[in-house]
Design a protein around this nucleic acid. Structure first.
Lengths: 199, 199
DNA sequence: GTCTATATTGTGATAGAC
DNA sequence: GTCTATCACAATATAGAC
């Protein structure tokens, strides 16, 4: 991977992730990379191939993170805390990835989901391991799939909806927005644990 | 509003909401409405104006729903139940609206949020009224904005992410997907109430 | 009001000089 | 490897016949 190629990839990531497949032209990418349009085809053959490279990058960063933690040996509540913490950290570094992925899976639902499954992610194993037998007396009865969806919803949605939340909830006040973001990790963790632990 | 005009609007709603602004061409809309391309411009002047009409429709259906319930006189737990119920019902009827709105606010964050504020939605009032003084002894201390974001996240995100959830969680098995959808309303309500009530 | 025809610009992609 | 020039096509939009 030479210098030009990686500059193209960086520019493509920025453009595709911010503006989607349809919202990005090859000219946009070439301009952002400060190179000629033809070089995009020289290195990546077509817009679709270039997009695939970016999409795989985003998907791999976004989804499998949670899987490794969930199948680990840690206690249930530790795993909840770790998953939320890891996810929020990653989202703070890549706040546009949720919208990018959500939008593109709506345009083409089959391929991205297949890619994930192929990459070694095993949902059945994750759910079977989510609430272990010896921990069931600490936890209210809950379907592990609903729990998983709840956790991901609470982590991811605020990033996908951030322009609306920032305006409606905080009138775009940057201090209040930052405060909200910093509180969020602990807030979600407590919310989930209160929702499922027997007290 | 004559017959042609409303057929254009219906077709535009379907196309724009499913495929977004960039993903929809005037030709797509004309084909879906079974009329000529020029008539779109005759009735709506430009693609942008036509899109605005559709976007306002979606936004008004999607957001203010929750506001009316939240400022009502019902008890706290009743309001939670009602909001979740109303939201899920509306989402079942309009499952593509979340992605449509989320995507377009990312492309143009300012205007849609402004539209909402102008339409009489008053977030400050909503939050002040969310947890009333006389109800605070029933509820764990929680920031009303975090609570509000949590509720909306739990309701909306599964619809935005449905192609991925359906594949990864249910291997696209339609029976399991339907079962999950039907359980969801009660599941969310219980999850929220457990998270915040003092027991 | 509805159509055909067309103007104009932008798109992804390729050929070929260097 | 990198550029210019150019292709074929699709996009939004408009002019003008009926």
């Amino acid at each position: 991977m030479n210098k030009t190629q990686s500059r193209i990839l960086d520019a493509a990531k920025e453009q595709f992730i911010r503006n989607g497949l349809d919202g990005t032209s090859m000219q946009n990418i070439a301009d952002a990379a400060a190179i000629n349009k033809s070089l995009l085809h020289y290195y990546f053959r077509s817009k679709e191939k270039l997009f695939d490279a970016v999409f795989n990058f985003a998907l791999q960063r976004f989804i499998p993170q949670i899987h490794g933690i969930m199948v680990s040996d840690e206690s249930f509540f530790s795993r909840i805390k770790m998953v939320v913490s890891e996810y929020i950290n990653m989202l703070d570094e890549n706040p546009f990835i949720p919208m990018f992925i959500l939008h593109e899976i709506h345009r083409n639902p089959q391929r991205p989901a297949d890619l994930l499954i192929q990459s070694g992610l095993d949902p059945a194993l994750t759910f079977k391991n989510l609430i272990r037998e010896d921990e069931k007396n600490l936890i209210r009865p809950i379907d592990p799939i609903h729990l998983m969806v709840n956790i991901i919803s609470l982590c991811v949605f605020p990033y996908a909806a951030s322009p609306l939340i920032n305006r409606i909830m905080f009138n775009n006040n940057q201090d209040n927005i930052s405060k909200f973001r910093e509180e969020r990790k602990e807030e979600i963790t407590r919310f989930i644990i209160n929702a499922i632990k027997i007290c």
